[in-house]
Design a binder for these strands. Structure first.
Lengths: 247, 247
DNA sequence: TAATATGATAAATCAGACATAATAACTGCT
DNA sequence: AGCAGTTATTATGTCTGATTTATCATATTA
């Protein structure tokens, strides 16, 4: 197990969470009982139970006396929990899921851009502008392109003034990191263009919701097409995807 | 405290979770230390710690030795966790938040309807049809209108084939229940019309994504307008909303 | 004054026990 | 043999008390 400065409980949550979404436990290999897991992780029951409870509250596990602890069906998992999404996307590059998450972004981000144009505060809009400047700096090596990209999308979500939209930032952070890691494997993939991002900012600065929406929509659509392209590529080579779609 | 058949831990999670989102604990009234909460709930430390861990995994709490346990800022809460959303919406009818959540629905559900028209399976579409039939039955008192309404929206989300969309069903279930409870207080509020819902189904049956999208958009927009109407009503009477918008 | 030692506090972790729920095994009867 | 009712087993649920560790406030010392 990986050593870390986190607490024992947190370490076990991460380890077990990843193992669960990777399908380590199934009919043939049922989830172990507390005693076994205690022995495996060399921790007390208290610690292990706390970890299991945390995973239970994310919809991954459930338990009953005498029946033991079991992994809940995938439909019960809180996909929108940052931890859960990260574990899911980290498992051997789950392209299908990344595509589905991008569909969420495609629904939300253009709307967020429109709302930002409509009612974003000066400070919030300035934050978007700053992100664009970081992206420009990144083009000449003065900043990290990935972090600048993330900062842009997060700033737009924040400027929407909708608390649910803003809460997607952890998720988008994760998705973008995975997305980059994924698409970088394939050649011919251009880095997200600053020009296209700037169009969103322009729409917001002009306080033109529809222009902002359209620009954002184009932006995410481009990302979506990229993923689909990778999907067909990996389909041909047979590498990458190995998700089961149900019994 | 309310007696129940749930476990002690679950009972405390619900009680503490609701108290936290209601703002019971703040600067003047800091979150109690473990020992005090144990005394208050009359439970052992194990139970209390498990409950605190569950709330920690939902982003509501955090703890450190010597510093104690504290409530995280609202920006850290997992709004998209079904429990958290329910607690939030249940706290004295949080109209602003309900409006924001409806903005999420406005972004997602039309897209889901379009996807359902595009790639929903026969069985999934049949499920939507069945929900419409339930709504019709409810009109003459042969079914529960709220449950039928929920079944419709859930069926559309399921038919979208996007796992993230499908995961919104718990949240929409909660939101619709609160929404009904809320709007019923005000007269002149017509129950969701079956005709408008059927238009979504028609678009999906015709495999016409844009028609389905437009119909769904109209449906949610109507709900949104209703909420805004109630917002202005309660603004006049001063009742209902009492959310703080920041320090 | 600033770096260092000390002490107090609250969570983190451990160990062992008993209670409870759900199932499996068993008994005794017809 | 076949069923009803009892008992035993098993894994989680809950409790208790103790020890360790991280952090902050204070006091001490150079």
């Amino acid at each position: 197990m990986v050593e870390s400065n986190r607490s024992l409980t947190q370490t076990i949550v991460q380890d077990l969470g990843l193992a669960i979404v990777c399908g380590t436990y199934s009919a043939g290999n049922p989830f172990p009982i507390e005693a076994e897991l205690c022995k495996h992780y060399q921790v007390s029951r208290s610690i292990l139970r706390e970890a299991v409870k945390m995973l239970t509250s994310k919809g991954l596990l459930n338990a009953r006396p005498r029946q033991g602890t079991w992994v809940e069906p995938e439909q019960s998992w809180n996909l929108l929990d940052p931890d859960v999404l990260r574990w899911l996307l980290e498992r051997k590059f789950s392209l299908n899921l990344l595509a589905e998450f991008t569909e969420v972004r495609l629904a939300i981000e253009p709307q967020a851009a429109a709302l930002a144009a409509e009612r974003g505060s000066e400070a919030q809009v300035a934050q978007i502008q700053r992100a664009i400047e970081r992206m420009e700096a990144a083009e000449v090596g003065d900043d990290d392109p990935l972090l600048a990209d993330i900062a842009f999308h997060v700033a737009v979500l924040e400027a929407s003034g909708n608390r649910f939209y803003a809460r997607l930032q952890d998720l988008i952070d994760t998705a973008l990191r995975i997305s980059i890691r994924l698409t970088n494997q394939f050649k011919g993939v251009a880095v997200a263009s600053v020009a296209d991002h700037r169009k969103v900012l322009d729409g917001i600065l002009a306080r033109d919701p529809e222009r902002a929406r359209a620009a954002s929509c184009a932006l995410i659509s481009e990302a979506m097409e990229l993923i689909q392209k990778v999907q067909s590529e990996s389909g041909k080579t047979g590498k990458g995807e190995s998700e089961k779609t149900g019994p």
